[in-house]
Design a protein around this nucleic acid. Structure first.
Length: 484
RNA sequence: GGCGCUAUCGUCUAGUGGUUAGGACAUCACGCUUUCAAUGUGGUAACCGGAGUUCAAUUCUCCGUAGCGCUACCA
């Protein structure tokens, strides 16, 4: 049974890189009829952020990357929050000590800091000097323990040889054993470190494939050692390349949004974000670019995951989001984007839906909605914009608008087509045609120099609204020409 | 500094011991649209460098260079 896990620490929001890791785990599990587990790694009490777990789960649900097991999801391998598994870790660390693979360390933080400082100054590699290693079973240890002296527990790493790990994406990676530090497994507050908790839980939760970020590659030999010490088979490893900023540094705030929910708030569709993230490091081997979650599950494989870091390029995400928006029915669009709509000024739902349909194809994200729907919802059009003056600040504007106003008064059946017919009549009677004619009317109707086609707009706007706007544009044009 | 990972258009990437090195985004031009967008067509644009192996190297090997990661009682 294939079992994968996403194991974030609840230190804030779900990073888009984290979402991608979760996605790949999810896809790989689903592709192989396996299960996807969410485990919360909250072993650092100092970095815990209240509400982060709930937020994480909420965002995963939004993205449709739903765990089969985890906090809130249940499962037979819980609890799925590490701070609730402290006894389990203690037992396992104890067995390591008994087998001689781990030892008590009473070195103070101060001593460690001084040591590191000295090593750095001497251009040596900063690492633990194994000071407490030889006293593993001494009476001194028992003595200090009974004195309640603070301590940590460290793993013993081999002094020579190499530890080789096998990675599904990178192949065999050998690490010289003398590079491996005697890693702390249990901190003085009684909490395990990542390394211990991770290995114990992955084993106990029967994780078959560890798919995680590349930043974990250097510590994987330590994990491999731990599996050996416990006498366990290790899971398969697959280390994913990192997501990068446009300047190729590790994706971070300040150069853009990194929290998945930032994209949600900006009006991106989860389908677009997921599709985009899936293609950042994985490819189907075909020219297909647009994938539903079902298609991703069907096509995904670790063999086609790339090794190099990928820049998170928002431009392609934008294109993809626009694409997904265009596939929506106007009703669905209305439903999904309602939270982004400005004051509708009395427009009811069905009117709003037709307005949305008119601008749908020009949308990149929902956050553009206030600006793009203004021409419909606005109470009074503002004609002061500089690019409008080319059309409204002219005597022709007065002529056109006067003529058009009288024309639309007599229209029998007011709609986009009849409005266009009225414009043709204006053209005939005034002799003004082409861009000056049409742009003047567009400016008068919408206060914009671009937007949906005139007949689309006037199909949605009522005769009264059109008449009112044309009238105020006419007054504006008169004022302007009088002043000149 | 040490250890490790990585290297094809600006970006995401495909691909091969002999290819006109393919696709997508972006960009440019043209068409459509009396605007914008969408869309259609076409264009510009890449194998990090040096050795080696080979008849032939973007592809294989080594070295270099660059970028990134790790180097905590953080994950």
């Amino acid at each position: 049974m294939i079992r994968t896990r996403f194991a974030p620490s609840p230190t804030g929001f779900l990073h888009v890189g984290g979402l991608r890791t979760a996605l790949y785990n999810y896809l790989f599990a689903k592709r192989n009829a396996g299960r996807f587990i969410l485990r919360i790694e909250d072993t650092d009490q100092n970095r815990k952020v209240p509400g982060a777990i709930e937020n994480l789960i909420e965002t995963l649900k939004w993205a449709n990357v739903i765990p089969d097991e985890g906090p809130e999801f249940g499962g037979d391998f819980g609890p799925y929050i590490q701070s609730q598994r402290l006894d389990i870790y203690r037992q396992h660390i104890q067995s390591l000590i008994e087998k001689g693979h781990a030892y008590y360390c009473f070195c103070s933080i101060d001593r460690l800091d001084a040591l590191r400082k000295q090593q750095t100054a001497e251009h040596r590699q900063p690492r633990y000097d194994n000071h407490c290693r030889s006293r593993s079973f001494g009476t001194e240890v028992r003595q200090r323990l009974s004195n309640n002296e603070p301590y940590v527990i460290r793993m013993k790493t081999p002094e020579t040889g190499t530890v080789e790990i096998h990675d599904l994406i990178r192949g065999d990676v050998p690490f010289p054993a003398d590079q491996l530090d005697d890693q702390v497994l249990m901190k003085s507050d009684g909490f395990p470190t990542y390394h211990l908790a991770n290995v114990v839980d992955d084993h106990l939760m029967q994780i078959s494939h560890v798919i995680r970020g590349e930043e974990w590659l250097p510590s994987t030999p330590k994990h491999q050692l731990l599996y050996n010490y416990f006498g366990w088979d290790s899971p398969q490893f697959a280390h994913l390349s990192l997501l990068l900023n446009p300047d190729k540094s590790k994706l971070s705030k300040r150069q853009g949004d990194v929290a998945a929910e930032d994209y949600r708030k900006k009006g991106y569709l989860p389908e677009a974000l997921i599709n985009f993230l899936a293609l950042l490091g994985w490819n189907p081997g075909t020219d297909q670019e647009i994938f539903s979650m079902e298609e991703l599950i069907r096509e995904f494989s670790l063999e086609r995951v790339g090794k190099s870091g990928a820049i998170f390029n928002v431009e392609k995400l934008d294109w993809m989001n626009g694409h997904y928006i265009r596939t929506l029915s106007p009703e669905k669009l209305f439903h999904l984007s309602s939270g982004f709509l400005p004051d509708r000024n009395g427009w009811n739902d069905s009117q709003t839906i037709s307005a949305l349909a008119a601008i749908q194809e020009s949308l990149t994200t929902f956050s553009e909605l206030p600006e793009k729907t203004r021409l419909f919802f606005t109470e009074a059009v503002n004609y002061d914009a500089p690019d409008l003056q080319e059309y409204l600040d002219k005597p022709e504007a007065v002529t056109i608008l006067e003529s058009l106003i009288s024309q639309i008064e007599v229209i029998q059946d007011f709609n986009g087509d009849s409005f266009v017919l009225a414009i043709k009549t204006v053209q005939k009677t005034t002799g003004i045609k082409g861009k000056p004619l049409w742009m003047t009317i567009r400016a008068a109707l919408t206060g914009e120099t671009h937007g949906p086609e005139i007949h689309v707009i006037t199909n949605i706007l009522s005769r009264e609204t059109c008449a009112r706007r044309l009238q105020s544009a006419l007054e504006y044009a008169r004022r302007q020409t009088a002043r000149n």
